[in-house]
Simulated scan of single mutants.
Amino acid sequence: MFRHSMRALLVSLCALTAASQAATAMAVAVPTDHHLAMRTAAPALRARTLADLSTAMKGEAYAFAVYGLFAAEADGQAQAAKGKLVDQPRPAVGELFRATARTELDEHLHEAAALAGVVGTNAANLRQAINGETYEHQVMYRRFAEQARKDGDLEAAKLFTEIAADEGRHREAYRTALTAVTTGRGTIPAPPKADVVSVPAGLPKVRAARTKANLDTALHGEALAHARYTLFAARARQTGNTALARLFEGTAGVELHEHFAGEAVLAGLVGTTKTNLRTAITGERTEATSLYPGFAKRATAVGDPAAARFFRDTAADEAKHASAFQQALNQLR
């Protein structure tokens, strides 16, 4: 579920570019889990390894987003505790969450993306984004909204409907940008601005199990969209297309600070800092002892040694992260 380490970034975006140049063209069909399947896959890797890398990217992106919220909560509790002789989080807890969050995105996700060949040309990246936004606009969020209304979760239905409309606007902006990139006609739209949502600690605001499951799916999708668009923006900047980079960055900001955050409020994703640390510890230990070792074993068995090495290294990182979070929790008791 979560992951991170304190190493410097091992795989640069230049490596992502090199990997993507060897990638195959993306299929047009819209998949069920579009943000994961929208991939310009590196054909040298086996299908099972690519699937495991997709799972890794999804978890790393989600961890980055969640740990950012946990960091903000820790900061707030630390500020409230100033001058009081009570058991409250130290400011260092927020820093720990932020540092591990950056590693999730800048190291682990980037490495997995390089191996999987996620980043393509600007045109290919725009087509990936268009397919994903189309699925969310026309299918996923509309279905989630309808189901939430039937289940009596009207607040969730309203949010899902609003996000569906946003995704439609994102799609149209990306379509316009694709025309500009491929034909040289027209201009790339200005980036959207996020309506930043604050996410305080709190209980879930939805009741139905189906709504909760849909929120979880949506949260993971928005987190991964943010991460992918960040990579696409870096690719655009490498090619000198600053306007396209800004469009990807602005949309990534909406996905994270508005959509993910709004869904996090409804899901009750953030608890007290002690609760958040326990959540992180559980996730890190699972990845360190089960998830990534299993991925490494499979990659080795099918002859994908580079991926197996990535999975083993990441498992070792996660064990260190679990220990760091456990130490922070012990200091708060």
Score class of each variant (00 low, 15 high):
A180Y: 06
V119D: 00
P189D: 10
G76M: 02
R127C: 01
F144M: 08
A307L: 00
D52E: 07
Y67V: 04
L154C: 04
A307E: 01
Q331D: 10
P189A: 01
L115N: 05
A47H: 10
D87A: 15
Q128S: 15
A148G: 11
T187M: 06
L85Q: 10
H35Y: 14
K193D: 03
T121L: 09
L9K: 05
A218L: 00
S12K: 02
A15P: 01
F2E: 10
V93F: 03
A227R: 01
D317K: 02
T121W: 12
L329M: 06
L203D: 15
R90V: 07
T230E: 11
A267F: 02
A37I: 11
R207D: 06
I163Q: 13
H34Q: 15
D317P: 06
L16V: 01
L244V: 04
A61I: 10
R142F: 09
A71R: 00
V181E: 15
T282H: 05
D33H: 11
R102T: 12
A164V: 13
R237W: 12
K150I: 08
F70G: 02
E249M: 07
R149Y: 07
A261P: 08
Q128C: 12
A208G: 04
R48H: 08
S20N: 14
A116Q: 09
G240L: 01
F260N: 07
H4K: 13
A261W: 00
A71C: 03
D151M: 06
V86W: 14
L231S: 14
K274F: 07
Q238H: 00
L13T: 14
Q21T: 06
A25N: 10
E146H: 11
Q326I: 04
A225C: 02
V197A: 08
D304K: 12
L109D: 15
G283Q: 05
H226G: 09
R309Q: 12
A78E: 00
H110K: 05
L96Y: 00
H137Y: 15
A81Y: 01
L85K: 10
G59L: 07
A51R: 09
A173I: 11
I188S: 07
S5D: 15
Y229R: 14
A78G: 06
R143D: 14
G168R: 09
R210D: 12
A19M: 00
P43S: 14
G202Y: 05
V86S: 12
R298C: 13
T272I: 01
L53K: 01
G68C: 06
A296V: 03
F97I: 02
T275L: 07
T182S: 08
G240F: 03
V86F: 13
C14P: 09
A99W: 03
A301E: 12
A29D: 09
R185W: 04
A252Q: 04
T217K: 05
K84I: 15
A194L: 13
P31I: 13
A280F: 05
V302D: 05
M26P: 12
Q138L: 11
E111G: 15
A15K: 11
Q331E: 10
L329V: 03
R39A: 12
F144K: 08
